[in-house]
Design a binder for these strands. Sequence first.
DNA 1: AATGAATGAGGTTTCATTCAT
DNA 2: CATGAATGAAACCTCATTCAT
Lengths: 190, 190, 190, 190
Amino acid sequence: MDKRERIIQAAIDVFSEKGIEKATISEIVNKAGIAQGTFYLYFTSKLAVMPAIAEVMVNKILEGITSEVKDGPISQQIEVIIRVIFNITNEYKELTKLIYTGLTQTQYVGNWETIYAPLYRWIEDLLQKGKEAQAIHPDVNIKYTAKILIGSIESVAEQVYLYDHLDAESIAGHKKELHKFVTNALGAYQ
Amino acid sequence: MDKRERIIQAAIDVFSEKGIEKATISEIVNKAGIAQGTFYLYFTSKLAVMPAIAEVMVNKILEGITSEVKDGPISQQIEVIIRVIFNITNEYKELTKLIYTGLTQTQYVGNWETIYAPLYRWIEDLLQKGKEAQAIHPDVNIKYTAKILIGSIESVAEQVYLYDHLDAESIAGHKKELHKFVTNALGAYQ
Amino acid sequence: MDKRERIIQAAIDVFSEKGIEKATISEIVNKAGIAQGTFYLYFTSKLAVMPAIAEVMVNKILEGITSEVKDGPISQQIEVIIRVIFNITNEYKELTKLIYTGLTQTQYVGNWETIYAPLYRWIEDLLQKGKEAQAIHPDVNIKYTAKILIGSIESVAEQVYLYDHLDAESIAGHKKELHKFVTNALGAYQ
Amino acid sequence: MDKRERIIQAAIDVFSEKGIEKATISEIVNKAGIAQGTFYLYFTSKLAVMPAIAEVMVNKILEGITSEVKDGPISQQIEVIIRVIFNITNEYKELTKLIYTGLTQTQYVGNWETIYAPLYRWIEDLLQKGKEAQAIHPDVNIKYTAKILIGSIESVAEQVYLYDHLDAESIAGHKKELHKFVTNALGAYQ
DNA sequence: AATGAATGAGGTTTCATTCAT
DNA sequence: CATGAATGAAACCTCATTCAT
């Protein structure tokens, strides 16, 4: 693994463990097994690592979705998307926080759209196909709705895992209700 | 205004201006017009002020909604809720970020539910009445849906104002689409 | 117990627990159950409490010795003195440190002689009687020897209890050896 | 001189001048001519420097004794030891206090035995030889007596120089009496 | 490209002390 | 006499950053 990669991984660990505020470059370089000065050859500050971390995270979601979502009724595809986003939010609990927390408090907020673009594109495709197959309501605005869809699912996943720390049963309940909510919203009949 | 209140207000200002990372206790006490040591009589660290700030923010949303939402068709009430949350997110852009970024990176995440409780209760009431009036689908789970509803609206508002920095027209488009989305989701016919 | 007394007792506790360096007036007044400001009505600083503490300690030794030492052969009397000083050093381990530590680092070193005076007087008396009874060597200088005697015993007691943390057996060994040492030194035959 | 050494020397100066309580790390680094942060690369706190200082002091005593004590009657050797310890206590008055006051109020008390070990070993050797030469009493326990001997001499030296601030004549008197005391104690006839 | 000891600015934090009640 | 909230000076200590190697 090259130095840049090692810094990103170490940063993920340290941020997850200590939070952004208390994470230090010293600890990141220690974990990465490189010298203090070397960090500055790759990044200008600890927050400058955030976009790279965000990319790692979005890629995980995208990989999860693309590998698990199969052809079939849109309702079922949405079920899979919800499951993947919930699972990844749970598995990478701290990392999820990091994206929101870290990116927003930096000059790198602007990169957000770029980083999320591939995920949005993928969802837009899905909606487009659903529309063509008359599986979702015809006057759904695809671009806006992609954003609303992802936002809804992520916000609930974060809510249940990060803030409410709910038990498995309640989480399942939220998931089911969320599925009903978004399929209704899309007018997805099949 | 008592000292505690002055610290909270000053902290809101400083955090909004500098971001959490670069905000300092020194600057907060300067703005608050109190002595350095006095801060520590009320809070243990700058992040310990966050729950108090979050409360201020949730209260603003709640006040906005309760004062603006009138009796009428549920679809119209939801329109108002969306408008209020969008407006407040826009107006208190930085403060909104603060709640998510500040609370999550502290030991105070646990307070989240408590702080949001009044807002959730109010939405639950609204849904309950809608259900009784047969204005929304009968098998909607009120508790879960309240959370989903707020989450969806906030996530889109943050998206358009904080991350995408969209123009007025696009924002209006998102709002309209979001309204369609959630009314469909609730099966809200009137 | 009056306020002054309560401050002294609280100071003993806090100094013993935290050491002089880390002891604070705040903690002393907390333990004493009085207000911050009240401290200053009785003492000018935390170190100014030291002479009062030292007095408490010397009194304990003096009380112990005077109540336990009976008439009899000088060798036996010395045994009792050693036992008392060892016991008190053990029982008030931290307090013993305090006297040496606290007094020396203050302007109050001068009070030392005054505080120890009664103990020295008592030992001088003992030696005087021993000399008259021809139980100790005739050319022993009573004043100097009193100081040497106390110094030797205290230094060994501190050594074994405070620095070496020896086990009971070794301590007994030191005590026995010390008794032999000082009786020989005094030429105390009976 | 390396940085660590410079810190120790500066700490000795500052402690001697100001006392432990009022000594500050700031002043130590100033005297040492190094940066504030550099101190923390070598020691964790000002009291953490104490063991290093204690070592310096014990070495001075050991050097003094080993260089001045010559072969000859044990009584004469003891006279030299007393003289050396008295001289060093006088010369390094403040430093002597430091060892007792500084070490005891820290977690480093445990290092005491280690630091004093070389001095004890040297005295034990002396006693062993004296015993073999039948110059001291045969049933003297060497290990215990070494400790008693050092303790007695140091305690009197500290007494006269640090606490009582006696005049030269009285000090000479104490020294002579002390010599008589310990030679008698050891049963040292020659 | 990589190192890591040293830096020192500037934040945090403490706590003796005051003073209006 | 007694209080204790407030003070703010002054200490602590961290940690991003540099630079000679």
